[in-house]
Amino acid sequence: MSDKPVTRRNFLYITTGTFTAAGAASLVWPFVDQMNPDASVKALASTEVDLRPIAPGQSITVLWRGKPVFIRRRTPEEISEAKAVSLDELPDPQDDAARAKNPEWLVMVGICTHLGCIPLGQKGEYNGWFCPCHGSHYDTSGRIRKGPAPSNLEIPDYVFLNDNTIKIG
């Protein structure tokens, strides 16, 4: 029995098989990728917000990437309250300065880190936010203090374009 033609034959079969499989595999990608955020959705990935209408102690909710974003102009009391907390008391320790670029303005994704409900403002035991779904309490810096939520309210990427405008995303 001669080995040679058999090897050559196997080589042909294996090459053909691999080549077919590789092509079929790359064909899958467009079908997967079509479900990813499309170009028109990505274009809405950043939102610019005019801060002028917001008075101290007020907050607004804007929609960013389909999610609510809380923008709160904090009062001096709220700021000092947030800064006074010792990090040891926090389930998810984070300094207030790390959460607000400008202490007056708190910008957070308004989605409870537990299971995605929207917390209510100026409620709860810490005078911050309270999630009605499963009873999570957040403080005036949006940090989790009590309840089932595992972490603080998320801070989105944002920049101050000038004193009166921020760009989220």
Partner: peptide, 9 residues
């Protein structure tokens, strides 16, 4: 290329 391979296979 695939058609060539398949032709010979």
């Amino acid at each position: 290329i695939l058609s060539f391979l398949l032709y010979f296979t």
